[in-house]
């Protein structure tokens, strides 16, 4: 049956292993420390892309979806695509809360400063 020979299975295993090793190298190589702090967003996006590659290989080959009828492929693979929109919305909202919290911290510090210095001005 298509996609189910032992050679192919081990090939996919080594691809998954290689991607995981690559992720560990990015996360742990001391020489990349500067990269990890200065380009945090880019590094995190790299992790996400590598994760999606792993997800593709698991679903397509191990779960055999690549070799199913096209209508089964679409009914399983399309609904999660709409999740992307939800992710964008929810993370954007999280960022907005973050802004509010930062503002609160700064305004609290200002209030403290005013309270601390108030007696001196009287």
């Amino acid at each position: 049956m298509a996609g189910f020979d032992t050679k192919q299975i081990w090939k996919v295993f080594f691809i998954l292993l290689a991607i995981t090793v690559l992720e560990f190298l990015i996360a742990l190589t001391p020489a990349l420390e500067g990269l990890r702090t200065d380009y945090k967003l880019a590094v995190n996006l790299t992790y996400v892309v590598l994760t999606l590659f792993k997800a593709f290989y698991i679903i397509a080959y191990f779960m055999h979806l690549k070799f199913e009828k096209i209508n089964l492929v679409y009914s399983i693979a399309l609904p999660p695509v709409f999740v992307i929109y939800c992710i964008v919305l929810v993370l954007y909202e999280g960022g907005y809360w973050n802004g509010i919290r930062k503002e609160n911290v700064t305004s609290n510090q200002k209030i403290e400063q005013v309270e601390n210095h108030a007696p001196e001005h009287h």
Binding site: I87, V90, L91, E93, G94, G95, W97, N98, R101, V105
Partner: peptide, 8 residues
């Protein structure tokens, strides 16, 4: 994700 994005 939402909680982590909102955390300081």
């Amino acid at each position: 994700g939402a909680l982590r994005f909102s955390a300081l």
